[in-house]
């Protein structure tokens, strides 16, 4: 039974990943950023006296900023872990040998993606104790935390798929990395810009329910930052629904859009892995 689900590439990648110092330094860097932030936040709210009190609203505020910060860190780290998936094998001249084994392209691509995603999950889990400080002070419900983590996972898999796709279709890791960061800038930054642009248009006199208002909703719903905001405070979601006239919760659209990205990118990666062969699967 175990052998049926055994993915050699996944196991090999995990082995290599945990043997490299880079992984540990990356994890340390990540936790250090979170620690510095939380320590700084606590010091600021207690006005460096080490005494004082901590209201649930302040704790909620910390939670919100921490969530966005963690999302930004994840977006920043994922490409560096996935954009080299296939291209680094090509650069190290190990890809040809791998492709002559009887493993299917699907197995290889999924193995590569899963190994990167599992490392990112480890990062997120390692950050949980810091997160749980928030619970100490109240103001946040566990279900909120769970849903936020689920959407971290969706985002990581989607960005990871984009990285693996670029890694397969470009010859060099550096190009794949630039392309993946470019996609993140699009998803995180350009969509936000378009959101504000369409919103400005909207406020200049367009009525609710027009194509402009739909576009406002669309740009917001594929932006990871916007999604996190609506998850943290549902009022934001309501405001957006009011503004755009689209009642569908942002997370549903986000989920559909990102699952589509995952499917599309992985399909391309699997098709292109053995691009020099006509028939492949």
């Amino acid at each position: 039974m175990m052998e049926r689900f055994y993915n050699p590439v996944f196991v090999k990648e995990l082995k290599l990943r945990f043997r490299s110092f880079k992984s540990f330094s990356g994890l340390m860097f990540y936790l250090a950023v979170l620690c510095i932030f939380i320590a700084g936040f606590l010091l600021l709210t207690t006005e460096f006296t080490g005494k004082g009190f901590f209201r649930p609203e302040t704790s909620f505020m910390m939670f919100a900023v921490l969530t966005i910060l963690q999302m930004a860190l994840v977006l920043f780290i994922t490409p560096s872990l996935t954009a080299g998936a296939i291209s680094s094998e090509r650069e190290k001249q190990t890809l040809n040998i791998l492709l002559t084994t009887t493993q299917s392209s699907t197995q290889i691509v999924i193995g590569k993606l899963l190994s990167s995603v599992s490392f990112l999950v480890l990062m997120l889990v390692a950050g949980l104790p810091l997160y749980s400080l928030v619970f100490l002070f109240g103001g946040v419900s566990p279900s909120q935390l769970v849903s936020i983590f689920l959407f971290y996972l969706v985002t990581v898999v989607a960005i990871g798929s984009i990285g693996v796709m670029f890694s397969t279709i470009t010859k060099r890791t550096i190009v794949a990395m630039i392309a993946t960061y470019g996609s993140i800038i699009f998803l995180g930054g350009i969509t936000a810009f378009f959101f504000f642009l369409t919103m400005a248009f909207h406020q200049m006199g367009n009525a609710v329910g027009t194509s402009t208002s739909f576009m406002t909703y669309f740009w917001a719903s594929i932006n990871p930052g916007a999604l996190m905001l609506t998850l943290i405070s549902p009022e934001m979601g309501n405001a957006l629904a009011e503004l755009s006239g689209v009642e569908l919760p942002v997370w549903i659209t986000y989920l559909i859009a990102y699952v589509l990205i995952i499917v599309l990118c992985l399909t391309i990666a699997i098709k292109k892995l053995r691009a020099n062969m006509k028939s492949n699967r």
Binding site: V11, K15, L16, N96, T101
Partner: peptide
């Protein structure tokens, strides 16, 4: 192949084990 690389951080038996698993 005429030119090939190896995975730096694998041991000899792990290297063979990986490819063995790759052939099912």
């Amino acid at each position: 192949p005429d030119f090939f690389g190896v995975y730096d951080q694998l041991k000899v038996d792990e290297y063979l084990d990986f490819y063995g698993a790759s052939y099912g």
